[in-house]
């Protein structure tokens, strides 16, 4: 067991859910980017349906964070320099050394892109005429920038927990990559559900393939992550395994490994390993989403419970 001297940050469920939702919104936006850049006309119904998803989520996320912090005003100290901190220059709060600060700004900027996608979807659905917005919403440069911020939102919480002195979290460089993988996986799972509900067979073909590929990449990252911990002199892997008991263990093995990875890998393999009945893509998507939430939970609470024990 590594001897660690740190105290656990005692983050609780609102943070876990907020970061899962932020990853889900960012992942969904990323799928929209893929459709914009490599899809065709027949993907547009799914594209515009997906456009309704990220923005409402990005409204819920700060509400959860505010709930966790306990006071609405406090949240603003992440973005606007408080008069109580005169050492910092400028009107805005930015600490380049703090991934939490990077992430807060990325979320704010990403929320703007999510709002743009939402407005575009409203226009495309014919509910509100916003024709002037279409060239902006479909600008390839803006979409690429939006994709970048979506990726930052997907992965910053992984980088954030690596930039600590907590056992396991800080013993690897793969946390950010791992979190991006699972966020993108959740976005593709949302796309799978939407395709299935809309009967969008054409889009579903690509989504099935992408979901399988993302699960495979996530599995590789997870193996590299565990392998990397195993090479640590101070027994980080043993510490992680030891912390995977009770609910955290179920979340990791059943949720993250079973539902988020094995379900799509087995059920969506190019040469099917099991016969997947028609209409099961939505179910696979739901299982993957549950698995990704479980992954977030296991990652946050394994290290914390290890420190506490």
């Amino acid at each position: 067991m590594p001897i660690k001297y740190v105290l656990p940050p005692e983050w609780e469920w609102p943070i876990t859910i907020a970061l899962f939702l932020a990853g889900l919104a960012a992942g969904t936006y990323s799928v929209m980017g893929l459709i914009h850049f490599a899809g065709d006309k027949r993907d547009e119904p799914v594209l515009y349906r997906l456009g309704f998803i990220p923005m409402p989520i990005m409204i819920v996320v700060p509400l959860l964070l505010i709930y966790d912090l306990g006071q609405q005003g406090r949240f603003l100290n992440l973005l606007i320099k408080s008069p109580g901190a005169p050492e910092r220059g400028g009107p805005l709060m930015f600490n380049a050394n703090s991934p939490m600060n990077w992430g807060s700004w990325a979320m704010v900027i990403f929320a703007g892109f999510a709002a743009l996608a939402f407005a575009d979807s409203l226009h495309q659905s014919g509910r509100i005429r916003l024709g002037w917005l279409v060239p902006i919403a479909h600008s390839k440069i803006l979409l690429a920038i939006g994709e970048f911020f979506a990726m930052v939102v997907s992965g910053y919480s992984g980088v954030l927990i690596a930039v600590t002195n907590q056992g396991v979290w800080s013993d690897t460089w793969l946390m950010g990559g791992l979190f991006i993988c699972f966020s993108e996986l959740s976005g593709m799972a949302v796309a799978a559900i939407v395709c299935d509900r809309m009967g969008a067979v054409h889009t579903a073909a690509a989504v099935r393939r992408a979901l399988f590929t993302f699960a495979a990449i996530s599995a590789v990252f997870l193996v590299l992550f565990l392998g990397g911990l195993a090479t640590q002199q101070d027994g980080s892997l043993a510490a992680l395994i030891a912390s995977l008991h009770e609910l955290v263990g179920v979340a990791f093995w059943v949720g993250a490994v079973g539902l988020a990875l094995l379900v799509p890998l087995v059920m969506l393999a190019p040469r099917p390993i099991v016969r997947v009945p028609n209409g099961s893509l939505a179910l696979i998507g739901v299982l993957v989403l549950v698995g990704v939430l479980a992954f977030r939970y296991a990652m946050f609470f394994s290290a914390i419970s290890f420190v506490q024990s």
């Binding site: 893929l34 490599a38 993907d43 990726m151 980088v159 950010g176 393939r209 992408a210 993302f214 990252f221």
Partner: peptide, 17 residues
């Protein structure tokens, strides 16, 4: 590493479509 994984996912996602 996060940037690399984002690039890998982006490329494979585009490839799927």
């Amino acid at each position: 590493v996060a940037l690399i994984s984002a690039a890998v996912l982006g490329v494979t996602g585009l490839a799927a479509f």
